[in-house]
Design a protein around this nucleic acid. Structure first.
Length: 430
RNA sequence: GUGAUCAUAGCUCAACUGGUUAGAGCGCUGGACUGUGACUCCAGAGGUUGAGGGUUCAAGUCCCUCUGGUCACCCCA
């Protein structure tokens, strides 16, 4: 009985066995883009107290209700959970270290694995990775817009994702939302017979979710449902309009989707999603919004905030092929002709590495042919064969594995000059 | 939590309506070329046909259970 990895939790193997280079390129693009917008990386634990998630995400949500990996701490009676999303931990950290009192504006980004016990599906796993960012301390709509500009640049420009659409909506403030939910519930209540079973449940538990329903018979009813827009306070409405104006002013395309809602309870005002084709049943690669009440809800001061999270696995699915170019192999591969030569190769390999070059050898020895095959297999640029003669002369030939058939006769390069010579040849051919 | 579908060598896949010893390509190892890769040719290693049970003279093939993969619903990044 083989021991397998846990369902829904995947290995990401190094290239060319796996898509590691795509992951790394996406991560690098995120870092570079976030840097430019003044976001600094924060790292928080993967495990937090269960209460934190219950309070922030919402006791009634599916995430908290049935999808968390929770357990009791070994000693005390602490209930702990693997984080199902990143914002809660980041905000907890922000409050715990009184960051607001050191700086009125905080821009942080984070990345790492998240855990939700769900049925695995295309673009959805039990351990999945998010990269997200939070801007705390600014209530102005310009912060929402700046964040969307950053994301549009990252996804469309840096990562070259085609068929990308920014969906945007406003959820209003707490009071707006309450009055809207009431209105929506009244409306759905009067049309219960025409709704699907799921929507009947949503009617009771969370009417907003019904707006996302895909069942055809529900559509005409939902199309005529009251819109949140009519329930927005004038402040919330102005905020939303300003965000849209700023986006238009910078030529960032978007689509207002009145029925867009969020899965987590803490959002208010601006909420958005970047969607793209090619993700199977899901189409969201990035989602986020404003959460002006969360910091206070978690016991901190009243600090407004906006944030988002990108789904790495989904990004990887969408990434254009150019991102998966195979990485370079070692600069030099040392081949040993016999047992004695192995120690010379060992020395030379290390000396090239100390000189900053990627060098490799086959410590097992074996036939020259098989070692040359290995050199080719790992895409080494040069091969250096070491035998009795090279060891006694302290010099060796350098074979260019990319040069093709003709190998011009040349004078051997002394071991001392090897690193410099390789550096020179690499520079010349680049 | 619900449903569909699949599982044969390291990988991608064959094996007529159940019927001899489960094959191929790629990859791996070695050789042709006794110290030089990629191309060619030759050879070799590698399988409890996902696991367990059942039907049958006979099961990779049919039935049941489990595990795992994939996809969809719910929900979500």
């Amino acid at each position: 009985m083989k021991i397998l990895g846990v369902k829904g939790m995947n290995d990401i193997l190094p290239d060319p066995l796996g898509p590691m280079s795509v992951w790394q390129r996406i991560e690098a693009a995120c870092r570079a883009r976030f840097d430019r917008y003044g976001y600094r990386e924060v790292r928080t634990p993967i495990v937090e107290e269960t209460r934190l998630f219950a309070r922030s995400i919402g006791e009634e949500t599916d995430i908290v209700g049935k999808e968390m990996y929770s357990f009791t701490d070994r000693k005390g009676k602490k209930q702990l959970s693997l984080r199902p999303e990143g914002t809660a931990g980041v905000v907890r950290s922000y409050i715990q270290h009184s960051v607001h009192s050191k700086n009125p504006i905080t821009k942080w980004w984070y990345g790492g694995p998240m855990y939700r016990y769900e049925r695995v599906q295309a673009g959805r796993y039990r351990q999945f990775h998010q990269i997200g960012a939070e801007a705390l301390g600014v209530a102005a709509p310009a912060m929402d817009a700046e964040m969307l500009l950053m994301l549009d640049g990252l996804l469309r420009h840096d990562l070259g994702i085609q068929s990308l659409t920014l969906l945007i909506n406003s959820l209003g403030d707490r009071a707006d939302r309450a009055s809207y939910v009431q209105a929506l519930r009244d409306y759905l209540g009067s049309h219960l017979t025409g709704l699907c079973e799921d929507c009947k449940k949503r009617y009771e538990r969370n009417p907003l979710r019904a707006l996302d329903c895909k069942v055809p018979p529900c559509q005409p009813i939902l199309d005529k449902a009251p819109r949140i827009k009519a329930h927005l306070s004038s402040e919330a409405r102005t905020h939303f309009d300003t965000v849209l104006e700023l986006l238009s002013g910078m030529q960032v395309p978007f689509e207002i989707k009145p029925r867009l809602v969020r899965g987590l309870d803490y959002y208010n005002r601006t909420c958005f999603e970047f969607v793209a084709g090619g993700l199977g049943a899901h189409d969201t690669v990035c989602a986020g919004g404003r959460y002006d009440d969360l910091v206070k809800t978690l016991g901190g001061p009243s600090i407004p905030a906006v944030g988002f999270a990108l789904g790495m696995e989904r990004l990887v699915l969408l990434a254009p092929k150019e991102l998966s170019r195979r990485p370079e192999g070692p600069a030099v591969f040392f081949v040993s002709v016999d047992e004695e030569a192995i120690s010379t190769c060992f020395r030379l390999t290390e000396s090239l590495r100390r000189a900053g070059l990627e060098a490799e050898m086959d410590q097992r020895g074996g036939s020259v042919k098989s070692q040359m095959r290995r050199a080719d297999k790992v895409h080494a640029r040069f091969a250096v064969v070491i035998g009795e003669q090279e060891t006694s002369e302290g010099a060796a030939h350098i074979k260019d594995l990319r040069a093709g058939e003709e190998v011009p006769v040349e004078t051997p390069v002394s071991f001392e000059d090897l690193a410099a010579e390789i550096h020179l040849r690499l520079k010349r051919s680049s």
